[in-house]
């Protein structure tokens, strides 16, 4: 195994509306060393998230890191205004799933990560 699913290294991967025209994705890492490696090696980028969601990079309107809680935050332009007819997820509570497809190369992570099988 040369890579690991990102969410196996996270305590939180969630989405929610940020106003009716945006939804926001919060990713919180479990270990400081992993979070630092993600930042140092740019393992998670705006471009990568845009690709996971199949949207142009301009639709990711905010991309931030938050050292305090080892978090990465990205906010996306909604394709349909929240709660307008056709919107499948009024609160955008379940739009995190495309982010679960992101994997990190083990070679870029601190030694031992993924070795004993990260908690699911």
């Amino acid at each position: 195994m040369s890579s690991i699913p990102m969410n196996e290294l996270c305590s939180i991967v969630r989405t929610k509306n940020a106003g009716p025209f945006l939804f926001t994705l919060d990713i919180v890492f479990r270990e400081r060393a992993v979070y630092e490696a993600v930042k140092a090696h740019r393992l998670l980028t705006r471009e990568q998230l845009a690709a996971a969601y199949g949207v142009p990079v301009e639709e990711v309107v905010v991309f931030e890191t938050f050292d305090n809680v080892m978090a990465v935050k990205a906010s996306f332009r909604r394709k349909i205004t929240a709660a307008s007819p056709g919107d499948p997820d009024v609160y955008a509570m379940n739009q995190e799933v495309p982010a679960l497809t992101i994997r990190f190369p083990l070679a870029r992570l601190p030694a031992g990560v993924g070795a004993q099988g990260a908690p699911k």
Binding site: K16, A18, D26, E64, F66, N68, V69, A71, K73, S75
Partner: peptide, 17 residues
């Protein structure tokens, strides 16, 4: 906790800062 309070600046808003 400092973490739980800081983490709240992620919640339901586009930007942390």
């Amino acid at each position: 906790t400092p973490e739980s309070c800081a983490a709240h600046s992620l919640y339901e808003r586009a930007s942390i800062y």
